[in-house]
Every structure is written in C-alpha cells, then in structure tokens.
Design a protein around this nucleic acid. Sequence first.
DNA 1: ATATAACGCGCG
DNA 2: AAAGCGCGCGTTATAT
Length: 577
Amino acid sequence: MTAAPRPTTCVLGRLAGGRVALCEIGGDGEPGPRQEFDEERLAEVVAGHEAAGTPRWVWSDTATWYPGLLAAGVRVERCHDLRLVHTILQHAAAVTDGAALRAATAWETGPVVPAEGRPPAATLFDVAPAAGSAVPHDLEETLAEHARQQAAIASAADPSPLRLLAAAESAGGLVAAELQAAGMPWDVVEHDRILAEQLGPRPGHGQPPARMVEVGAQVRTALGDPMLSLDSPPRVLKALRRAGIDVSSTSQWELAEHDHPVIEPLLRYKKLSRLLTANGWAWIDEWVHEGRYRPVYLPGGVVTGRWASNGGGALQIPRQLRPALRADPGWMLVGADVSQLEPRVLAAMAGDRAMADAGRGKDLYSGIVEAGVVATRAEAKVAVLGALYGSTTGDAGRLVPRLRRTFPRAMALVDEAAATGERGGTVHTWLGRTSPPPGPEWAAVQTRGGVVDATTADEERARRAGRDRGRFTRNFVVQGTAAEWALAWLADLRLRLSRIAPVPEEHAATASGPALGNRPHLAFFLHDEVIVHAPREHAEEAAQAVRDAADAAGRLLFPGSPVDFPLDLTITERSAK
DNA sequence: ATATAACGCGCG
DNA sequence: AAAGCGCGCGTTATAT
C-alpha cells in the first residue's frame, strides 16, 4: 500500500480589472507561475483542476469565493480558508513564531457580514460588499498570508494538531457555504398547520391570533386587570405582585413555582407569544422561498469554535417546528445526533477509562448509574452537566463530587482548566484552539481585589470574576473539542456523500442547487446533529456514510481511544419531534 | 428620535 | 425546575 499523493496546493486571488489568478505551490513551498484569466472563467478553471486531481484550494475567504462556484455547479473537495485559520492562529498558544501573522492585521476580521439569506450570487464578486468579509482577496496578499500561516503552524512544537484544525475549520467553511446553497427543505404548509393548531388561523396584518386573544383574556381576568398589556414584562410583573404573587421576574421557571389561577394561562400565553414572534407567519414570509430556508452559517462564530448563524435563528428553531423540515418528493431525511458528545469528548481527552467504559455502546448516563455513582439517569445527567459547566450549588453541587471519585482523570482535566482560567491563564482545545485571554477589565478587578487595602467588596468581586472565568475555561476545553469532533465528522461526511452516485437529472432536488441537488447532501447542522437530504434510493447509503464518518472522526481526533461516539439515527420523510 | 442594554426564551 | 457553559433574536426599557 502506498501513501496517497499529497494533494497539490492551488492559490486563488484577484488581480486588478476583474481578472483572477491561480498559482500552484510547488513541493518546495515556492509559488509557481501565475495563470491569469477572466473572472467569468473561474468556475470552469476550478472545475478543471478539481477533475484532474482535487487540489487544496487556498483562498482568502470561503464565504466570498465558494457560493459563486456552487451556483455554477462546481464543488471543491478541500480548501484552506485564510480568514478562518488566521483567527485561530492569531491566539494559538502552540504558535511560537506568530509575529508576522499577528502583524498582518488586515486579516483580523470582525463578524462576517451576512449575505442576508439571499440565494448565492450568480457570479463571483458581483454581490455588493454586503456578502463575505473585509479581508484582502488579491493574489499577492493571499500568497503572503498563506506563507505566514504555514510558518506559524510549522513553529509549533507539534504542528500536526494545528494542521488538522486548519483543515477541519476550512472544511467547515465549505460545509457552511454548501448548507446555505442547498437550504433546509421547508414545508410551509406543515409550518402553517402547526401555527394554526397552536395560535388559530393566520390573523390579518397587525391582528393578534385568536388563541392569544382568548388566553390573554383569561390572564387579565385571573389578575383582575382588564387593560393589562401582556407584552410588557415590567407591567405584568407589577400586576402579579398586586395580585399577591411574590415573584421578582416574569420568567417561566419562577412563575412555575407559584400556585395561582393566573400562572397556567400566563405561561401558555408566553409560549404562544414566543412562537408567533420568533417563528410565526412573518418568519415564513421572510425566510422561506421556493421550499427552502437558507440561513447563513458562521463557522467559528463562537469563541469555542462552535458555529453561529445569522438569519432567522437557524440554530434555535424550536423542536415544535421540526416536522416542517421535510424532504423533497422522492427524497428522505437522514437525521443523526451524537449521544452525549461533550462528556465522551472529555473522556477521550482525559484518557478516562472508567468513563469510556460507562458510555461504550450505550447511553452514557445509564452507564454512570450502572457504575453505581448515582441512583438515577436524571441524577447522572445533572452531575455530568454540572461537571462540565462548573456547578457548585443545588443537586449538581451535591452530585459532582461523586463523579470526581469515579472519574478522577476526566474531572482533573476540567478542574485544571478551571484553575488555569481563575489564575487568568488561557486554555486550549485538543487541536489547539486557544481561549481568549482575560480582558484588561478582568485583570483590573483582580489587581484591585489583591492589594493590601482592598475592601471586602473588592475581594469578593475579584473572587467572583475569577470563578466566572474558571467556569468559562472549564467549559471551553470540552465545548471546543466537541466542536472539533463535529467538524471532523462534517468534513469526512461531505466527502463520503460526494462519492455516492448521482441521480438522474429528473430526480434531482433542484432547489438544492446544481452542485448538490443530484446526490445526498447536508441540509442541517446543529453542534452535535446533522440532517442529510438524500434520494430515497440512496438514503441507506447516506446513513452508513453518517455512521462511518462519526467513527472516522473519533479515530482522527483520538487514535486508539476506547471512547466511542454512538449515534441516534433515523431515516424519515420529515424530521421528527 | 435613535442607539444600546436588559430581559426572556429558543437551541446545543 | 433550575443550576453551571455557549449562542441569536425579538421585545421593552433606558440612555443619549
């Protein structure tokens, strides 16, 4: 068996006058001759190289370059996204020689300006500056930044985790663009049916739905306040207190503590109000077009490396509306989520054999019960979440110490991360994404709390800020490494799906676009969950790809680890629950 | 009048 | 049921 040939590296950049250039990097790391061409030929040129040998494309920003290619029917296998990788390397503790990289401030971008959920631009760069980011796109800048990033990675004592992270993050960029291009197949009839079932039929513009009118009247009656506006929490709060209900806010968990005839209708009203304002008919009108909901995904949008999204609250779609996610005719949805991803990732990082055993092949929480740590699954879950989040009070505070006895290695890892954070230090994920350092304000609070004439209040403030930061760094290592596992899963999965045979043109999911609509493709991603949209005849094959990719992700990040990552997987026409 | 903060609640 | 982490977004209240 011979090693696969290392893919060639092709750098893309803009030139003056709407021209584009491609430059291949040789085995010695030196850029070769520049091949110039008109922008209109970009898709054709990329497709040609892709067919010839799947190079790694190096470009300024996937969100800028890739949507146009997808719209032209061109997928790429792999890339290196300079914007995403710059953000990681800038603060990476493993990078010992990053001065040049950090000096290149043009690559320090804020949040990406979203493309407003529009369908991908017909041609590259013809969208207003609205889409993509502000990083430089021209060829020489691109080459220079690529060289800086290679040098920065090479300066690490062990560059391989950072190389893996750069590849995974870049693959995430490709997936994000592909998710937006494909969109979520959205059944507006089902969505409307769910809304009508809860709220009553769609009311006229500016009118409240019938059910909210009824339930609102019940609330006002129960409070004896016929004019009360239920949409103003402060007014509702005053009314509740007038009615003798001792609450300090109108949040549902506090309301639920009390026994009064107003509680039930008020909670019901809040639920209806939330559904209407967040995902009501206005949401459908704004976000669903031609059977697709196309949010903007922002890889690396969260400090821990998790994704954020923009447009319609894609990562917060209520489970209630999941049935509106429905496959095209003749297609199926393959939905899979990882059971207890974060604690499993922790067990793998820490090499905690006992925790690996507790989860192997089964529900991790049940395994913890069987190990005799706690009596019930609910307790196990509270304890584990408490360990990951740094709970010190209530049930979690009582249960976490038991975990510490049975899983000392796992607990030592998160406890150490917390201690480092409390001291003002930084921590990093398995592949080397480093937590942001504390800001100047945090440091000032610590200084003020530590001087000889500090007041008790100063000391308490400093201790509290320390503990707050400790909980952040404690969670950072686990949440961030779980995000890396998920990236590896996505990256491997998209390649497996791309190798499944295409369906004939007449069976294609045309709304998913020319590059993706003819074979199984990702339609949704949410931290530890994917949904693949697949032709019925290839759904089983796609499901196996999802499973195989999960196994591959575990092996890639944690070679030889006894920790497994079981999936809950279903093949259905519409998303359940 | 408009920008910002705070709240509350949806998701993991 | 919330608590302990990370978010986005629509709302009202408050500051400018």
